[in-house]
Design a protein around this nucleic acid. Structure first.
Length: 639
RNA sequence: GGCGAUGUAGCUCAGCUGGUUAGAGCAUGCGGCUCAUAUCCGCAGAGUCCGGGGUUCAAGUCCCUGCAUCGCCA
């Protein structure tokens, strides 16, 4: 095994704010990086933002900003988000970084000098609305499918990268390196694509059409376009061509990407590297999409899951665990808060949280919190396959993690957690205590704590915060990063030291069952006391509020609070029952202007029909009717 | 239209090169324990392994075909 590990996420295009997909990719890369560190590898983890291109210019214009101001703002959002999700990247690169720009130009020049970039003039159908060319086939009735206008035939010249030249080499390379692109389905997709002749890649845009880009070093009338700029980040970040980091880490490079960008990463990038004389990366790891399930809980979220909101509601570790456990790397998965809550309660609260809690609690009960010493061979019968189970879990974990099979790795850990819970049942420490079987009890309790030590280590790449918390409660030195090697050895937990009291690692989340069909309220927008859930303008619009003039008022017999009012809305007169008798006498109301909810369903109060509702403030000195500071025509709309 | 993938318990999915009564988690029902976050442990029910052919002593697993869903390409 190599001693070095270099992992990257794609650099995220800043025409949109961070969403679930970004979070997943980045967390997956972080988990891989943390695992590599756990293996003792010299690890480098890169992420960043992609900031050039016409979409950015447009998005910036929409917000009335310069591209620079705009990309600074969105890029900052990504940069601020990652620490919230416990992301431990070593570098955050931006394609607007001067060092990156220099490397892109260096690389372009190098490939240009080698003769793999050429200039070519061509004629095409151009839609000015879309600012792009269309092929005949893409058009609908000869018109742009977006703008429904006929594109114009224009001539343009651009620079092209001779990608086709490397097609054979690439096919051959993919055949020789079975796991170059993985999982296999995406490898097959790339190979299928490569069965057709590979066209050369247009890598420029004339400055007349786009200024927000990196100028070609050999022709300043052009800037480089999208992929050439973006992909280069993986080497520019390392200081290619001569940086130490490049020399050290590049040979161990791995990329993680979502399936929508496999072509640039699986085809453009390897051929670019080949043309530049750079060895290709070792693995392209491709994952699927998160489908957002429309459920009761998530309706209010719309179709975008905000990673930060998830973290704030459920916690970073929990969110990370869910994403890693729920998705089979490579396949699509569906996201719903219901599924998330199910995982939290079942896997985290019940399985691991409760296990941790009960073991620590027993340690306090039986030993005053002091870790007992095991009794070795004398109590060997108390093993119940626990040591073997621990090793099995660790080995499976070690096997699956480098394959990005996070769900399988976690399943192995949970199998061991299940075994620990069974172990408690089988050994029944409370019985041992009652029967005075001290040696057995010592061994059992030590084994449980030791088992927890291993669990703590195994979950650390996925749930770093929880892992640290557990380590502290097991009396382990948290300053020491967890090493995989120590998880394969049984008996590393020292005896004799005193543990802190147990804590709830993962509180259960109470779910409302059946009866509750209304979605739980989204958080109130402000910190008001008794704040109600947020509503949209359409909800406000549903209320028909009117100015009413009170023309008659009388008390309702046997009621202390209610008054019967006749309220004029101009065209009609409404009878309204109002609960204001304690603060207003009937006489005092005549002629007052009030606010009336005019479309409230009629109801009977104390046997009296009421066709609306008068609004009033509930102040310290009783009720105060919502009135108007000037005369307003009865029936006027209030909004 | 071409290529490919998938279709297994109510839900989400494991089932490698074909071989005993088809598995796990969640959900459901019952039982047990009491150390623990009303948690944990055990048991149970439930599946024509998409339909139809075929190869084989033996097929969820291989072949053909149909249907459905999805992806890539055009």
């Amino acid at each position: 095994m190599s001693e070095v590990f270099y992992i990257t996420t794609p650099i995220y295009y800043v025409n949109a704010r961070p969403h679930l997909g970004h979070a997943y990719t980045t967390i997956a890369a972080d988990v891989a990086a943390r695992f590599a560190r756990m293996q003792g590898k010299d690890t480098y983890f890169l992420t960043g933002t992609d900031e050039h291109g016409d979409k950015i210019v447009k998005a910036a214009a929409k917000e009335d900003k310069s591209p620079r101001t705009y990309v600074d703002a969105i890029s900052a959002e990504f940069r601020k988000l990652w620490p919230e999700l416990s992301i431990t990247h070593d570098q955050f690169i931006r394609t607007t970084d001067p060092e990156h720009i220099r490397v892109v130009q260096y690389l372009l020049q190098k490939i240009y000098d080698a003769g793999d970039i050429y200039f070519s003039e061509y004629e095409g159908l151009y839609c000015y609305g879309c600012e792009r060319f269309y092929t005949e086939k893409e058009l609908v009735d000869g018109k742009c499918p977006d703008h429904l206008t006929e594109p114009e035939k224009i001539q343009e010249a651009n620079y092209f990268f001779r990608m086709g030249r490397y097609q054979e080499w690439l096919v051959d390379y993919i055949h020789k390196n079975q796991d170059f692109i993985r999982p296999e389905r995406y490898r097959n997709e790339i190979l299928a694509f490569l069965r057709e002749p590979l066209e050369d890649l247009c890598i420029s845009r004339p400055v007349s059409r786009l200024q927000w880009g990196i100028p070609l070093p050999f022709d300043d009338r052009f800037v480089t376009y999208v992929w050439f700029d973006a992909l280069t980040n993986y080497v520019s970040a390392l200081g290619y061509p001569e940086g130490d980091k490049f020399t050290t880490y590049w040979p161990a490079a791995q990329h993680i990407v979502a399936k929508d960008i496999i072509k640039p990463h699986g085809i453009y990038w390897p051929t670019m590297l080949k043309a530049a004389g750079i060895p290709v990366y070792t693995h392209l790891n491709v994952h699927g999409y998160w489908n957002i399930a429309e459920t009761k809980m998530s309706k209010s979220l719309g179709n975008v899951v905000d990673p930060l909101a998830m973290k704030n509601t459920y916690g970073s570790d929990t969110f990370r665990y869910f994403l890693m456990r729920e998705m089979v790397f490579g396949l699509d998965a569906s996201f719903s808060e219901e599924a998330l809550v199910t995982r939290i309660n079942a896997d985290l609260a019940n399985d691991i949280g409760n296990l941790f809690s009960r073991v620590i609690a027993m340690t306090h009960k039986y030993y005053g919190g002091k870790v007992p010493a095991p009794h070795g061979t004398k109590t060997a019968s108390m093993d119940f396959g626990l040591k073997a189970g621990a090793l099995q879990a660790t080995e499976t974990f070690e096997e699956q993690m480098p394959l990005m099979a996070f769900h399988k790795a976690l399943m192995a850990v949970w199998a061991f957690i299940g075994q620990l819970n069974k172990y408690i049942d089988a050994t029944a420490p409370w019985e041992l205590q009652k029967n005075g079987q001290q040696a057995e009890l010592d061994t059992v309790m030590y084994n449980l704590l030791e088992g927890l030590r291993i669990v703590t280590g195994l979950i650390s790449p996925v749930m770093p915060e929880t892992s640290v918390k557990m380590q502290q409660h097991l009396g382990l030195e948290d300053s020491q990063p967890v090493r995989l090697e120590t998880l394969k050895q049984w008996g590393c937990l020292p005896s004799g030291h005193t543990l802190p009291k147990a804590i709830r690692l993962f509180p259960r989340i109470e779910t409302k069952t059946d009866a509750d069909t209304t979605p739980p309220p989204p958080p109130a927008p402000r910190g008001l006391k008794d704040a109600k859930p947020a509503i949209g303008i359409e909800d406000v619009g549903r209320m028909d509020l009117r100015v009413g003039h009170i023309i008659r008022a009388e008390a309702i017999k046997k009621s202390e609070k209610l008054l019967k009012l006749q309220v004029s809305l101009g065209e009609e007169i409404r009878q309204v029952v109002a609960g204001i008798a304690q603060d207003y006498s009937p006489e005092s109301l005549i002629g007052l202007q009030v606010t009336l909810v005019a479309n409230l369903k009629p109801a009977k109060l104390m046997g009296v029909r009421s066709e609306g509702m008068i609004l009033a403030a509930n102040g310290e000195n009783g009720l105060c009717l919502a009135s108007f500071d000037r005369p307003v025509q009865a029936g006027s709309i209030v909004k």
